[in-house]
Computed example of a mutant assay.
Amino acid sequence: MASFALKRILVAVLVAFTVSVVSFTVLRLSADLAQALAGEGASSEQVEQIRISYGLDRPLALQYLDWLGNIIRGDLGESYYFKQPVSALILERVPVTFTVATLAIGLALLLAIPLGICAALNRNSWLDRLCLTTAVVGQAVPSFWLALMLIYIFGLHWQWLPLSGSEEWQGFILPIIVLAYYAMPAIMRLTRAGMIEVLHADYIRTARAKGLSLRAIVTTHALRNALMPVVALAAVQFGFLLGGSTVVETVFALHGVGYLSWESIQRADFPVVQSIVLMFSMIFVVLTLASDLLNAAIDPRVRLQ
């Protein structure tokens, strides 16, 4: 287990380094940051002065090394627009994004796994078709459209919930539903496929021949193996909910990290955008590593592979 974990950690570090290089280079080359900061009416002398003052005239490799050195020391820089430390800005917004994403993935798992099990146990029945239809619709419906529909129905028409804002806990209900519905289809379909495959295994037929009840077979024997791929998928989906919350937070005016990234992109606030991209990338790497280690702990065959 130790050698397996060491290999996975080494791969995670290499992936994190590659992501940092690619994201830094792409964001730097996507636009002239000095021109964006100076504004459209700025003269060439003003643009050049800004370029020199922010170190944008230096070679890209040196800019990256300086930025990486500051990151290692815990210094994310200062926001061009807010004139505050980037770390303070992000830490102020993280609780909103983390709360919504955590509750959303929890709700998605709570609904998707039982539905996937029921669909597998009743394969080709009306319940199975209903679950698959729900999954297809969930993958096809854009999150912003669903968010707007929920705002219209529950906020404007029935006036049960607030339209936007994170000042009250009721303002989190609709965003959580939207993100949970976005994550449900993949989890439900993978649970269904895993259960169907496991239920046809030899050891399940042996358990049935011994006279075990269906509940015991599902909970004790089948579910553990069927949910192994779901663990990895749930980790990735949680990362998607954290990193992909920009649209939902913007629609519902939730002042989380996603909304901060949208504000920073609009204002060409490079240090904030770069730090948010790096943070979400590291979250993906850590979640993937955690799912690999958890699967290895659940099933020793993963370590042998």
Rank of each mutant, 00 (worst) to 15 (best):
V231R: 08
V218S: 01
I265F: 11
L65V: 12
L148R: 14
T97D: 10
Y81R: 10
C118L: 09
S291E: 01
M188I: 08
W67C: 01
L254F: 05
L156P: 02
L68V: 12
V11S: 12
A112G: 07
N295I: 13
S264P: 07
L146A: 10
P271E: 15
R208S: 08
V247N: 02
P59M: 06
F238A: 04
V257F: 03
R28W: 09
W158K: 12
L130K: 08
A207Y: 06
W169L: 15
V198P: 06
A147V: 14
A42M: 13
F82K: 13
Q305K: 11
L148Q: 15
I187V: 15
V248R: 04
Y152G: 03
W67R: 01
A207T: 11
L130Y: 00
A290Y: 07
L107P: 06
V286N: 13
F240E: 10
A232M: 02
E48Q: 11
P142Q: 07
A268S: 15
A101F: 05
D75H: 05
V11P: 01
L107T: 02
L241W: 09
D292H: 14
T206C: 09
T219N: 05
Q46T: 00
F172H: 02
S20N: 12
L37E: 11
D57S: 08
I72L: 13
F154M: 04
I173W: 06
P85E: 11
V257N: 09
R215D: 00
N124R: 14
L60Y: 06
A2M: 00
L115D: 03
S275C: 14
Q159C: 01
L37S: 09
A119W: 11
A201G: 03
R208T: 09
L287Y: 01
R58D: 08
A42L: 02
E263F: 03
T18M: 04
I151T: 14
V236D: 00
R189C: 00
Y259G: 04
R8D: 02
Y54Q: 06
N225P: 01
T246Y: 05
R205D: 13
G155S: 13
E167I: 12
I173P: 13
V248A: 14
F154G: 05
F98E: 01
E197S: 06
L60C: 08
C131Y: 08
A201M: 07
V137R: 00
E167F: 08
S44W: 01
I217N: 03
L174M: 15
D299G: 06
T25Q: 08
G106Q: 09
Q49D: 14
T99P: 00
R28L: 07
P175G: 10
Q35H: 01
A119Q: 12
Q139M: 00
A147S: 15
A232G: 01
G211T: 13
L33N: 02
M184Y: 07
V218Y: 04
I204C: 04
V218L: 04
L115V: 10
F4P: 01
E48D: 14
S275Y: 10
V248I: 13
V11D: 10
